[in-house]
Design a protein around this nucleic acid. Structure first.
Lengths: 209, 209
DNA sequence: AAATGAATTAATCAAATGATTAAAACATAA
DNA sequence: TTATGTTTTAATCATTTGATTAATTCATTT
């Protein structure tokens, strides 16, 4: 049986194209991706891409939306859990997000670089602003500040630091590989260490000692 | 007198093209940039781009190299100052880098997204690895660990966190604007606050209390 | 087996895009 | 002013690229 580059076992043509498109778009971004790249990666005739998805842009929008949605979902679930404490949430975020990104390390840079152009207003289509700033997570930060357990700070700084500590090394990975002369395994171990350390770092940063 | 889009007062044609190319490449990246975009931005005839710079790729390599060099230079100067302490270096980094990036906020994402492809091995051409890991900065981290002032940690984690705290909000700015419903002024104030806080956060993270 | 609609292919199209050319405009030196 | 080399322009080229078409193959139903 013929396999495409991902070694998929006979998904239907539409799925093959979508999966190939996801891989290529994630790797190279919209502008650097040629529809012929996707067709080759999927092992299908070029015309089938348009047959199933109308256009490169439409296909991209599907991939972009699914990618962003998957990326946000994890965060929102953790942020809105009524049962976990603020520190537990930072632990869950560091844990889950690191694991998720390790499986597809190119996704954060893909999302951020595509958002730069912002042409298609993807952020408008996802209800981001309200949902995050009105989350249990933000409420808990404010409560801890009010209770005197956390230093006075804009909750947005808390979020930026948490996301930054988790996401930044992946976005800057070529730089970090180079600076540290790292192998793939080295890098992964470094991220595993961060998974444990980030909650501790966050605690040190924001909590009164 | 005719002005181009940047309102430059009559620099020579070569400079006009280079400056326009810098703006457009920084904004859209290599692949999404059309040579006609640059020509229009510079207010010159398309053929002049090839006359002065041979090709889009050659022009891009000049811009990429200059941009990366400018970005690294600041860091290396601070990192290798024999006179400043480790904490003073974090203060200088937060201060200088934030100010630098605020002037051209799109540069970090430009560099990181272009490094992703890595086709041209820009990192090989800049002597990164040795120079950073053998800097005074790294030496001071090791010394502080040996002296028992800093918790046991891979110095690379120190660098990742420092760079991440400074750079990440700019790389993720569309997201942060949205999450916080920020105006440009709001965002700038937030970064000003970070400029002050980052050294304190770093100290809290790594120094024994 | 024949008929019908869906899926696939090779060939082709039109627009976009990087680059070149030949002529014109301009500046400078003799 | 004329001659010479440089800069600029409009037009054009060749290739790339997203998309379409018409024909063929395949699968399903009758």
């Amino acid at each position: 049986m013929l396999e495409n580059r991902a070694g998929e076992i006979d998904p239907n043509t539409e799925s093959k194209i979508k999966n190939a498109a996801r891989r290529v778009f994630h790797q190279k971004g919209f502008s650097a991706t040629r529809t012929r790249d996707i067709a080759e990666e999927a092992g299908i005739n070029l015309a089938l891409l348009n047959y199933y998805f109308r256009s490169k842009k439409k296909l991209f929008e599907i991939i972009m939306f699914e990618t962003m949605f998957g990326f946000m979902q994890n965060m929102l679930v953790v942020f809105n859990d009524e049962k976990t404490s603020l520190l537990e949430k930072t632990e869950l975020m560091a844990e889950k997000y690191t694991e998720m990104i390790l499986k597809e390390p190119q996704v954060p840079l893909f999302i951020l670089s595509e958002l730069r152009d912002n042409a298609s207003d993807f952020l408008e289509k996802l209800p981001m602003a309200n949902i995050i700033m009105e989350s249990v997570f933000i409420k808990q930060i404010k409560d801890e500040i009010a209770a005197g357990n956390i230093k006075e700070i804009n909750p947005l700084q808390f979020i930026i630091n948490l996301l930054g500590l988790v996401i930044f090394p992946f976005v800057a990975s070529p730089l970090i590989y180079k600076i540290g002369s790292l192998s793939t395994k080295d890098f992964e171990l470094l991220m595993q260490e961060r998974k444990k350390m980030i909650p501790i770092w966050i605690k040190s940063m924001f909590y009164k000692s």
